[in-house]
Design a protein around this nucleic acid. Structure first.
Lengths: 335, 335
DNA sequence: CTCCGCAATTGAATCGTTTTAATATCCGGT
DNA sequence: ACCGGATATTAAAACGATTCAATTGCGGAG
């Protein structure tokens, strides 16, 4: 059980502990030959600095916490990658926790991050966490919301304009000649879902002779998509929508399976379909899926930027960055 | 910037810091009325203990690092969930890093975990890390390999018997009457892939009149699966295999798309298909996919158990836990 | 030849918690 | 009335890196 400390290194190198620390943190303050001697000692002894001690002294960690709704969702995996890359540029690391859409797990991770005095927290919130985050801020730990804007602008956030995305999706379906649109998604309590629905409504209202049916789901999963799809094909042909906008790609994939594969209903001829997120899988599904692309990695990277800036200067103005989503047309919705 | 410390709590409660610490860590040693007073003070001041100081004193953290090959892969997401749940039972948290199949990222996470004096490390290795892990062990940080056994048994590991899995898959295809089997997977440098291939070989060798063709891929992705699928259907009908065993489900899904959807080749009639992992998606793909199931969550949980046991008693014998995979038959390979 | 200023280096104090040895308090038993 | 022995509580010493005020050494200006 080796326990190599700066003290050991200092002794071996024949200098003081202060100098060893300086070699590691401000090499410009140390004479080149000294640097060399110290670095050799570090290498010889296999010294690795103890981050706990460093943190204790510094008051805060050099790691950023990231809490996501679902690690399994490729959207978040990609977002995490973007955040990691950006953080690494400044010598920070990202520590990821998975709330799995459960308020208690989310809360447990916030506790953990508070105890660890994280440099900051990125969170895609599930429950109502603004109070918790406010508290963290008082402790000197800033937070940035990802994938959802703060209701009261009291926190910086990075998201995409879900309303615009919903509108783009439905505009596209309508311009392809569709008239009986169905929106599939839920629970509507989730902000992203309600915004995408609001966008759909706005589009439908702007066009004459177009109807919008809302089919609510209990979750944004493949399974729920399949269930809804079965219900749709069970209807009389004339009762079916001629286009479906699914609140995310997982739902869309499920719909595709039950509508197209397990039944004889042609996509896009009888029913056009479009999803949201443009996950990697979308382009490679049975019928390549149209979708609304979110710049996931960019969202992660931007969030890290805002967070580090706020950590440097807590008085800094909060910023709401909103990216425009982008319509990606593939087979599933071609006229 | 509040900085509530045990000292503040002690003052407020009118006791010593030692007592405050005892209230938090060994309440049985403290008189009930005192406990109450201290807890009220903690609540009033909103005290949160500083984990860095705690760790510094304790010598090691109460967190376990987990390095996975790919967060996006549902198999690892599930494994992580299992590990988190088990760790939480003992008051540990899991901190996840994504090596993304890159040796430098993997190494960076090992550095980080070493600096943080993690309680232990779970790793699904990509590069050759045994030297690094040995070093960690000397520092008092045990490691357990997940999803791959240690070449030299010098580390505990939890995995499934990939050879047996491969054999099961091909046995099943053969017993369904198939004779021209193709194995699709790669790069073969990855242990899991070569083992599954070895299992396939063993099965083929045990049966007369069965041939095995190996089609190597550069990665285990949907895209690679599609590419290989296109190549297969481009062949003359008589040159095609009548069954394909894909080294994981992502490949299998890709194959399914190009073989079944984008061409007129019937699955399973003309070509039977089976994957590996049994990810959630498998049961809900176009043609429900047969697969070899790995108990992902159980693997994660078991790995945590071994790790914590070794952390408690470093002299403990290493253990190689190997789970038997399970054949799951669905439409894609029915005779 | 002395003294100033600059660069390099030192050593002690510090961060906040846990832990341990020592002290204070109380109780029934003799 | 006193004492042995729990039981509760305290004060002080760690843990290991960082930092800052203090010190040393040195070359050049006067």
């Amino acid at each position: 059980m080796s326990a190599v400390s700066v003290r050991d290194v200092a002794q071996r190198a024949g200098v003081s502990v202060g100098t060893v620390s300086n070699v590691m943190n401000r090499p410009d303050k140390v004479a080149p030959p000294t640097i060399e001697v110290v670095q050799r000692a570090i290498a010889d002894l296999g010294f690795v600095r103890n981050d706990a001690a460093r943190q204790l002294r510094a008051g805060r960690s050099r790691a950023v916490g990231l809490i996501v709704l679902d690690v399994g969702n490729p959207f978040f995996a990609e977002l995490a990658r973007g955040a990691e890359d950006k953080a690494a540029e400044s010598g920070f690391s990202i520590i990821m926790g998975n709330s799995n859409q459960k308020a208690d797990r989310e809360s447990a991770y916030l506790d953990l991050f508070e105890e660890q005095r994280m440099h900051g927290v990125l969170i895609s919130p599930f429950g109502d966490v603004t109070e918790r985050l406010r508290r963290l801020r008082e402790l000197g730990i800033p937070a940035v919301l990802v994938d959802r804007p703060a209701a009261d602008r009291s926190f910086s956030s990075v998201s995409v304009d879900d309303v615009a995305g919903g509108q783009q999706a439905v505009d596209h379906l309508i311009s392809g000649g569709r008239r009986r649109i169905a929106f599939v998604g839920g629970p509507v309590g989730i902000r992203q879902v309600s915004d995408r629905l609001a966008g759909s409504r706005r589009s439908v209202d702007a066009h004459d002779g177009v109807s919008l049916e809302v089919i609510e789901t209990t979750a944004l999963t493949v399974r729920e998509g399949q269930r809804v799809g079965r219900d749709i094909v069970a209807r009389a042909r004339t009762e079916r929508p001629d286009a479906v906008f699914a609140a995310n790609d997982l739902l869309a994939v499920g719909l595709l399976q039950s509508i197209y594969m397990q039944s004889a209903v042609d996509v896009p001829r009888e029913i056009a379909l479009i999803g949201f997120d443009d996950v990697e899988f979308a382009s490679s599904s049975v019928v390549p899926l149209s979708s609304i692309r979110q710049p996931s990695a960019l969202i992660g990277a931007t969030a890290v930027e805002l967070l580090l800036a706020e950590a440097d200067d807590p008085a800094r103005d909060r910023q709401q960055v909103v990216f425009e989503p982008e319509l990606v047309v593939r087979e599933s919705s071609r006229p």
